[in-house]
Design a protein around this nucleic acid. Structure first.
Lengths: 196, 196
DNA sequence: TCAGAAACTATAACCACTATAGATTCAGAT
DNA sequence: ATCTGAATCTATAGTGGTTATAGTTTCTGA
């Protein structure tokens, strides 16, 4: 069993990447709705059937990976945070370094992010990818807080954290929005009973 | 200007209702994916083009109204809550009486709810309808708390409240889940810093 | 070297949805 | 009462995403 990938897996990865690059290039040029999957398949020099074999989730998934990386990143951020740091603080820093919340990115990634943020179908799919990590994140949080990962409070917190990109990503100052939301999650909404 | 609707509006409402009923009946019988819009149009005795004229949001929207009622209900719950009651408590009671959180419903509505909860496409659309009220709810909350409705904290709270049906709707005990989530939103997540 | 798995292809189909143009029905003003 | 214009409905034909099928090529492991 060779340490390197066989030719087959290598070709597969190449095809998948050709599809991603073709899709991103065409989307950037003509907009998401201005491009058909047939054009993308052509540009990557494969058949339409092959395109869907590589990207079973459909057109929107073309420019995304499967989200496994995000999942690992989140879990690691919670589990390996420095001593004295809270779970929320660890998550806040983790997310602040990603996606819509930083401009410290190469220009290709920045334009990709802008494309996603400005295209509803892609924003929705991005949210789906984040939320797919809910279970893993809930387990990580549960492990750190001595609760069960099926505890609704834990699941809700995980979900709410993962909704932040969608919620704050379109704000004029995304980072400030991110911080405001984490403050809310940490301290709760101040009671404001109606005057009697 | 007559107090009652003209014949035209009456017929329009009839057609729309015929479509809703046909869709619900067929979905319940054969499952959402087991029914085509052509079958629904046939069952309601209209053309496919007419179906889409009545329901521009597409197949999933067939069994829903436009969500205006929900919006009014939520805003009223916040604004007209009894003296001494907090905003969150008012929203908790409002939601507890609706959708997935009560069984105090006629059997037709119960089976409709079960169909929605068990069909991903319909669950997603239901969430969309809830979230469409985010702006209105944020305004209502802002008015009660002396903040601005564009305040990220207000918007986040509104969003998080409106996500509750999707988040808690599939739990074994939805009402308990609802209460747990409102407790989290009210008090925040207890800090659990890592031991040094 | 051989057998089988995996990837790719062309083709054809299905379905949601849209566009168009024409027919019918209704509402409001004259 | 009638006329005009707008709303509604219709059939038809298309677009585009997605899947199914069946057959071909390419790689892998025995």
């Amino acid at each position: 069993m060779p340490t390197t990938m066989g030719r087959r897996e290598r070709k597969k990865a190449q095809t998948r990447q050709a599809l991603s690059e073709a899709a991103l290039r065409l989307f950037s040029e003509h907009g998401y709705d201005g491009v058909t999957v047939a054009q993308i398949a052509d540009e990557a020099d494969v058949s339409i059937a092959t395109l869907f074999a590589h990207v079973p989730d459909g057109k929107e998934a073309l420019i995304f990976d499967d989200g496994a990386e995000r999942r690992l990143w989140l879990v690691a951020a919670v589990r390996d945070r420095p001593p004295g740091q809270s779970v929320l603080e660890a998550l806040r820093r983790c997310m602040a370094a990603r996606g819509p919340f930083t401009n410290d990115l190469p220009p290709e990634l920045r334009s990709k992010r802008d494309l996603i943020v400005s295209t509803p179908a892609l924003r929705e799919y991005s949210r789906k990818l984040w939320i797919a990590s809910e279970g893993s994140l809930a387990e990580a949080i549960a492990a750190e807080s001595g609760r069960d990962s099926s505890d609704m409070t834990v699941r809700a917190l995980a979900r709410y954290v993962l909704e932040i990109p969608e919620l704050a990503g379109t704000e004029p100052d995304p980072l400030a929005a991110l911080n405001a939301i984490f403050d809310l999650l940490g301290s709760g909404w101040p009671e404001s009973p109606k005057q009697a």
